[in-house]
Design a protein around this nucleic acid. Structure first.
Lengths: 369, 369
DNA sequence: TTATTATGTTAGGCAGCCTAACAAAATTTT
DNA sequence: AAAATTTTGTTAGGCTGCCTAACATAATAA
């Protein structure tokens, strides 16, 4: 009941009853109980086409709020939101320098931004229930071996407020969650999100739940066996080097015809020239799209998600969509391919969703801090 | 309650109560109800170390039985079992010739074996509740597009008895189910089963449930992108040709030193010589194990199952285990690797498990025929 | 004004499960 | 052999969560 109210936001009793399949007396009793506990409060009335007005309820003051942080390689994005995901406050901070790995730089910036957000706190937001942080690192669950990952580095310079639970999740997984809750995959309970940019990664959503895996490594396609061919031996992590923008641009610049204009300076430049009709740029983009299509095909051959959403600096460009779709479907099994529509906010929206879910579980006593 | 009785087989009330967390009065009432419906019957008593004897119950006559068929490429294996998986009757039929694909040959043989099994039926078995058939083909669920697969070919010469529901499943998925219910993966709710032999395939079990995918293609690693390397373009289905025993033996024979004894005649011969210490055979097996390790690494990078069980003509050989384990863990993330222990019976045991589960769902009115 | 429709409340009941207490049947202790 | 202990099973009574039925309330439509 409360879970649904938190997920839907403002709702009337009939709306909740329809979803839950409960009778009106039951609904009234439940709402009364939630109001007594301060977990629901009436915020207005809704007039249907006919008949009496329905009261509209929202999570109450005691439901509180969460802080969601995208601890990215270049920016820290932070959102403070109510438990039903209304935005209360947001911040963006650009790191002085790009970070290859999660480390002290990022931890320090997160500490500052969270402190600033805490200073803005308004009593009307209710209590802070959780802090969610999306990390550019592998993250293991409570039963996993946290020492085997880099995830603890987020706490090197950042100490969360006492007694506030912290939710950690991999940033690509967060983006997948966001595509499901806010983005292009809202109509699919099962899909894969593939991120192609500086690094590569994948998030897998199965029946509405994130697949994490035993080591939090599900979707870590940076470790797909590559190169993989007769007579070759794969090298750990090599596919990320091959597919990442850095190696791509090296190949582009290396093969750029001397007769033509100066080679593109970065991936964005390359994509722009390809969009503008430059044949050389187009060919390189096409080639890269084929490689992305091959990765998608491997994903389909393994988990057959039915839908793959493309994101990341390169992946989110609609230019590559047709080729990725064509190659993936030719190599494996029918799969729909879509381009992400959330842009830079995907990750922070995803960790926000996970943080609010965790907060609801805590309030309902169904999870440990 | 009935579901648990079917899963456990003979059980006492206290045993069921402990698992379900129900009180003794509730248990008594439920058992009485099941006995009235003919779905449970007392089959004996069990004396503990101390205290009164406990009555032992089993699924009753009305619970009936199922027929499970492994419609394999070389053999048809059939088991008739009670709903709690006690073997009532079994048959094996060797096909006159190996079948590359599911077709009329297999369908005809299945028809004959099922007819023979039906003729053996004993009234004490109760009603036939379901026929399960494991197919060497992709199988889609009820909501999928059955016309896109070869699965309907099983019915070209075989017509199941009227009103008897038929459960179809891919044979590799069945083997995975069997490893979970009867085999080496009983202690893992999440794992992948990788079959390497004439063909290659994978079955993925997540939280105790088979991952099927949108097109029934989850685990169809025969369509992983291959070859996959800088400057190469993948070819659909090529990895199955490369990894299958046929191509392996071609390479082995082609590279066999002329000075030595005659090259091995088949994969079993190769493995035997490798086990016997033949250096050339060993090198080839080692090389193949590396390739299998690479595939396992790709699987781990995608779904991170924590455990991979190796099966199939080549995969089930313990000789390859160390190398597969070493390569997979070097290329990706920590994963345990085990060798299947079920042998040729894996598939039929798996489809038996699925058929009994379906039968229980039907009896409980939780599935459609 | 009256009819219709949707929302919300009151009253009463049923299903599923529980605990407490007791009865029955086995063992161990006296 | 009798008594105490332990486990299984039954009986009685009660609680929780939900339901339906009927009624009250408040809006629009006729």
């Amino acid at each position: 009941m409360f879970r649904l109210l938190a997920a839907r936001g403002a709702s009337t009793r009939p709306q909740l009853g329809e979803v839950l399949g409960l009778s009106r007396p039951t609904l009234s009793a439940a709402i009364a109980e939630l109001e007594d506990a301060g977990l629901a409060s009436k915020v207005g009335e809704l007039q249907g086409a006919l008949g009496r007005k329905a009261s509209v309820y929202r999570p109450g003051l005691n439901a509180g709020h969460v802080i969601a942080v995208d601890a990215g390689s270049t920016h820290i994005r932070l959102r403070v939101s109510s438990i039903d995901r209304r935005l209360l406050h947001s911040r963006i901070y650009r790191l002085p320098s790009s970070q290859f790995f999660l480390g002290e730089e990022i931890s320090r910036a997160v500490a500052e931004e969270v402190a600033a957000a805490l200073a803005e706190a308004d009593p009307a937001w209710g209590p802070l229930q959780a802090i969610g942080i999306a990390l550019p690192a592998r993250v293991v669950g409570p039963q996993g071996d946290a020492k085997a990952t880099r995830q603890q580095a987020i706490f090197s310079c950042f100490e969360p407020p006492a007694d506030i639970p912290v939710v950690l999740e991999n940033n690509v997984n967060c983006a997948a969650v966001a595509e499901h809750s806010n983005g292009i995959a809202q109509d699919h309970e099962t899909f894969a999100y593939v991120q192609i940019g500086f690094k590569i990664g994948m998030g897998i959503m199965l029946a509405g739940k994130l697949l994490r895996g035993r080591n939090g490594a599900a979707g870590e396609i940076s470790h797909l066996a590559f190169p993989m061919a007769n007579g070759m031996r794969p090298i750990p992590g090599e596919i990320e080097h091959y597919m990442g923008t850095e190696a791509l641009m090296q190949r582009v610049v290396g093969e750029w015809p001397q007769s033509a204009s100066a080679p593109p300076t970065d991936a964005a430049d390359l994509m722009e020239r390809a969009a503008g009709g430059d044949a050389t740029a187009r060919a390189h983009v096409e080639r890269h799209a084929e490689d992305i299509g091959a990765i998608v095909a491997s994903c389909v051959s393994m988990v057959d998600p039915g839908l793959v959403v493309l994101g990341g600096g390169l992946g989110a460009n609609p230019l590559i969509l047709p080729t990725v779709h064509e190659v993936a479907n030719r190599l494996s099994y029918p799969v729909e391919v879509r381009t992400s529509s959330l842009g830079q906010d995907a990750t922070v929206l995803g960790i926000e969703k996970l943080a609010t879910e965790h907060a609801v579980n805590l309030i309902l006593g169904e999870a440990k801090p």
